[in-house]
Amino acid sequence: MTASTRVLLVDDHATMRTGFRMILEAAGVDVVGEAGTGREAVALAAQLRPDVVCMDVQMPDMDGIEATRRIVAAGTAAQVVIVTTFDRDDYLFSALDAGASGFLLKNAGPEELVNAVRVVAGGDALLAPEVTRRVIERHARTTPTPAPAASEVPLTDREAEVLQLLAQAMSNSEIARALFIGEATVKTHVSNVLLKLGVRDRVAAIVYAHRHGLA
């Protein structure tokens, strides 16, 4: 985490924003703004150009799902992490469909919030452990055609290792530490894995790994 990571906090409770600000600033994150409604969030995201938006769901004026959709549609570089009290499937899947890069529950510890910001700022996706399985199951149900058998995909040994770690919902930096390789190398391996599997994203790769007993 570096001080150049710029975060916008969005929550209709000022005390919650204050708590998040204290946690993030203590970790060296630059909190560049706060918003109490979805409409304020959309306007400030366009004005401040943060790297990460920590977004509540239930807010007056415009909810966090619609705000996320508008921020992502605007084409800014901001990555959105939904941070909510409610562990609900409709919030989870609507947020992901809207383009959120992460989903975290408010009962997560301070270090989990900091890690979420770090992970999505680095271009990875992050899901709370409580919801990862539900995303995998839903994605598996809605995938129209099965992925090719593991024996049909010419993954190198290293790519297979990366896929196994992806299946554990590890970020690129976590995979790099586990395999004692550089993060840029991990990104290359992940791209190759997605290409060879013929899948669009990391979640689909996780589904593949679970379907083929690689997780």
Rank of each mutant, 00 (worst) to 15 (best):
P146I: 08
L126E: 02
D56Q: 03
A100S: 12
E25P: 05
D87T: 09
V53E: 11
G109Y: 11
A78W: 13
H189Y: 15
L127M: 11
V53H: 09
I23W: 07
A209W: 02
T76K: 01
L92V: 10
R70E: 15
G28Q: 05
H189V: 01
R134G: 10
A204P: 00
M22H: 14
D51F: 09
L197V: 01
I175K: 08
Q47C: 03
P50W: 14
A26C: 02
A178M: 11
Y91M: 13
A43V: 14
A184R: 13
K196R: 09
D63T: 03
M16F: 14
T68E: 09
P144M: 12
V114H: 05
A27Y: 07
R158L: 14
G75M: 02
V57E: 00
M62H: 01
L8H: 12
S94P: 01
Q168M: 11
Q168S: 07
R118W: 05
R133Y: 05
L113V: 14
S171Q: 04
T68Y: 08
A160G: 09
R39F: 00
M170N: 12
A41G: 08
I136N: 01
G64D: 09
V135M: 11
R141M: 06
V203C: 02
T37D: 07
G36E: 11
I206M: 15
Y208D: 04
R17H: 08
R200T: 06
I71G: 05
A108P: 07
A140G: 01
M62Q: 07
E40S: 07
V57L: 14
V114T: 13
I23L: 12
N115Y: 10
F180A: 15
E111L: 13
A67P: 00
L126W: 13
M170V: 01
V162C: 04
E159L: 09
E25Q: 14
L194A: 03
V31N: 02
D87W: 02
G33K: 01
A178H: 14
D63P: 00
E25I: 05
A26P: 00
A108T: 15
A209H: 03
L179P: 06
I65C: 05
I65Q: 06
T84S: 13
V31Y: 06
